[in-house]
Design a protein around this nucleic acid. Structure first.
Length: 500
RNA sequence: GGCCCCAUCGUCUAGUGGUUAGGACACGGCCCUUUCAAGGCCGCGACACGGGUUCAAGUCCCGUUGGGGUCACCA
């Protein structure tokens, strides 16, 4: 793959028309990997030629998104580079120049048809069951007529003069040769009446001028690739290599859309997923590791990436598997690092830092770590550390089986809690307030009382954590401290009094 | 509808002519266990169909079916 001497340049070319799409990140990841593997450059180019769809701030948000994933670009509007500018809106002269060349060479022509006429043509053709393309009315316009209309200031577009016969072929790096009949190709508008180029002109001009060697984009571009190939030929340029990545799908297999699934990659961030998990997940859509590993870092992916291991079938974005992976990544972090991420991403409840030392917070994070699939779940799991929470007296009862039949009566539970309370109060019973000592003492106590440990631990758990599902009991008690635990037991005794 | 792309468990995938078709998520069961998780073990579960080619086809070819994409002065 590495080919010293031959420069490899790839690019991601977002349109600043909305939010950073997860599918774009997927394509960016591959582009990034291909460039990095070859020691080449990964370029960011902003395709902002549609002024009507321009969204303020979208470019910045996109950059924020790829940076979050660690897909650093070497050249782009924010970092500069030798072949700028990197925004298409700032490259108008370059497109105009090439459009002129195309017209002079007979590969393009000016079209004065109005949008209304085009709509009619389309409608009529659709009705007749024909392909809905432009009918090429202006293609044969005499030079003097064109001159006349130009002088009259008639608005016009520039269209590609697609050969009427023959076929255009190109090789897709993933699928092999693709052949399309020229008669299937429309006389695509290259320059809009507002003077801005369309995607098709701009992409070819820019990729050539920027020295892009590998065009890696989504599969939806396959059918328009012949237009681009025709343009390369008409302009006398060598076409680059084309690779069309499969489209990520909704569960119903349609193209991924926010109707079905969040597609804004920053949503995943706000939701508390780790960037490692996102990159890892995208890296296993349509690609597999040689050793079958499913949990891997961005750099491991980079090292292992190979076109040979890329598939062409559109993968479904499986949220379940993604969540599993997210949990795997949370568990891979050190407790300190996890705590840092929770803080940095705004998922650390303020009350925790106020009430506990940094070491204690880290200890709490450790207890939560293997219970988390995303950072946002943290706060909900540790609320009881900060404040006592309401619970029903009946929650104190130990139960068994699926029907949750109580295994002890209310009075029994009340007595048990009282016994535990006095045990905790006396230094001699529980010497050191550590998880280990507590566990030892409680087990001895259970034995003495002839209670099953699990039956005894449930009332204690609820008394201490205010819930039946919680972090490990003894570690939690250690962090909470003796005084707080005693206070909570007092409250439980009060509640248990109401149990029959 | 025309054109183009695609086709292995529900999902992500391994597989490059000879495999009891492997792994992962999810699901079910068991174990571990102070709850919930995490972890371990076991199980369920797929080559869309039909023709070829071949001694041999999930693997190659053709067709059918199915899914997707695309048919803008959007990208």
């Amino acid at each position: 793959m590495t080919n010293p001497g031959a420069v490899v340049r790839t690019r991601i070319a977002p349109s600043p028309t909305g939010e950073p799409h997860i599918g774009n990140m997927y394509v960016a990841l591959i582009n990034w990997a291909v460039a990095r593997r070859a020691g080449g450059q990964f370029i960011l180019r902003v395709e902002d030629t549609d002024r009507t769809r321009f969204v303020e701030g979208a470019e910045e948000t996109f950059i924020q998104a790829i940076n979050w994933l660690g897909l650093r670009h070497d050249e782009g509007p924010d970092v500069g580079g030798p072949v700028g500018p990197y925004r298409q809106s700032e490259r108008g002269d370059l497109y105009r120049e090439q459009a002129e060349r195309l017209i002079e060479g007979g590969h393009a022509y000016r079209c004065f048809c109005t949008p209304e006429r085009l709509a009619e043509v389309r409608k009529a053709r659709q009705k007749a069951g024909q392909a809905t393309g432009y009918d090429r009315k202006c293609r044969g316009l005499a030079a003097d007529e064109v001159r006349r209309r130009l002088d009259a200031g008639r608005p016009h577009t520039v269209r590609l003069a697609v050969p009427l016969q023959g076929q255009t072929r190109f090789t897709d790096g993933l699928r092999g040769p693709i052949v399309i009949e020229n008669r299937e190709v429309d006389d695509q508008v290259l320059v809009k009446s507002d003077g801005f180029p369309t995607y098709h002109l701009a992409v070819v001009v820019d990729d050539h001028l920027m020295g892009v060697t590998h065009i890696i984009r989504a599969e939806e571009w396959i059918v328009s690739t012949p237009k681009h190939v025709l343009l390369y030929e008409a302009l006398g340029w060598d076409p680059p290599l084309f690779y069309h990545m499969p489209l990520i799908r909704n569960p119903d297999r349609s193209k991924l859309s926010k109707r079905n699934q969040p597609t804004n990659v920053l949503w995943y961030r706000r939701e508390g997923y780790l960037p490692e998990a996102v990159v890892n997940f995208l890296g296993m859509l349509g690609h597999s590791m040689p050793d079958g590993r499913e949990v891997f870092t961005r750099d491991e992916f980079l090292k292992a990436f190979s076109w040979d291991r890329v598939t062409t079938t559109g993968p479904v974005f499986d949220m379940e598997k993604f969540e599993w992976l997210s949990g795997m990544w949370i568990r891979r972090l050190s407790a300190e690092e996890l705590a840092r991420r929770l803080r940095d991403e705004g998922f650390m409840p303020a009350g925790l830092a106020e009430k506990f030392s940094e070491e204690q917070v880290t200890a709490i994070v450790t207890l939560m770590q293997e219970r988390l699939r995303k950072l946002s779940e943290f706060a909900g799991g540790v609320g009881f550390f900060i404040d006592r929470e309401p619970y029903e007296p009946a929650d104190l009862l130990p139960t068994k089986g699926k029907n949750k039949k109580p295994t002890r009566t209310g009075p029994e539970v009340l007595a048990a809690i009282e016994t535990m309370r006095s045990a905790f109060a006396g230094e001699e019973t529980v010497g050191q307030w550590t998880a280990e000592a507590l566990q030892e003492a409680l087990r001895a106590l259970a034995d003495e009382m002839e209670w099953k440990p699990r039956d005894l631990f449930m009332p204690l758990r609820v008394a201490v954590t205010c819930r039946r599902i919680s972090t490990p009991l003894f570690e939690t008690m250690e962090i909470l401290g003796r005084d707080e635990c005693l206070a909570r037991l007092d409250e439980a005794i009060e509640k248990a009094g109401s149990l029959a």
